[in-house]
Design a protein around this nucleic acid. Structure first.
Length: 107
DNA sequence: GCAATGACGCTCT
DNA sequence: CAGAGCGCCATTG
């Protein structure tokens, strides 16, 4: 792993429970990187496959998915498998599945 | 060390 | 609702 920031981000993402999602900005704040939503995306992009980090539970502020070309389909599938139905426009209903952090994270 | 890049976010048009 | 512009800053060449 390249940097400590990445570890902070992974630590937060790893705490997102099944059936729930968080936005990049949200993760950034929880990781102590408020305003650096980009870094979160960057970190997840560099995330090696097979890691215990539920990267698919992280979406952008609009509930939309982007990720890699074609990778968005994978993420969509993983989310639906957790019971998260996507909107007609292919977006996550944040109003219902947005993860509410337990105080200091880590329960 | 500098310049370009980027799984984003927010505001204005 | 779509597009454009600006901010924020670690990682990379």
């Amino acid at each position: 792993m390249g940097s400590i920031s990445y570890q902070r981000i992974y630590a937060v993402v790893r705490q997102i429970p099944e059936g729930r999602v968080a936005t990049y900005g949200q993760v950034a704040s929880l990781a102590g990187l408020a305003g650096q939503a980009r870094q979160v995306g960057y970190a997840l992009h560099a995330l090696p496959d097979g890691t215990a980090v539920p990267w698919h539970r992280v979406v952008n502020a609009s509930g939309g998915i982007r990720s890699l070309p074609g990778g968005d389909l994978v993420q969509r599938g993983l989310l639906e498998r957790e019971g998260i139905r996507l909107d007609p426009r292919g977006r996550v209903p944040l109003a219902r599945v947005r993860w509410a952090p337990r105080r200091k994270t880590i329960r």
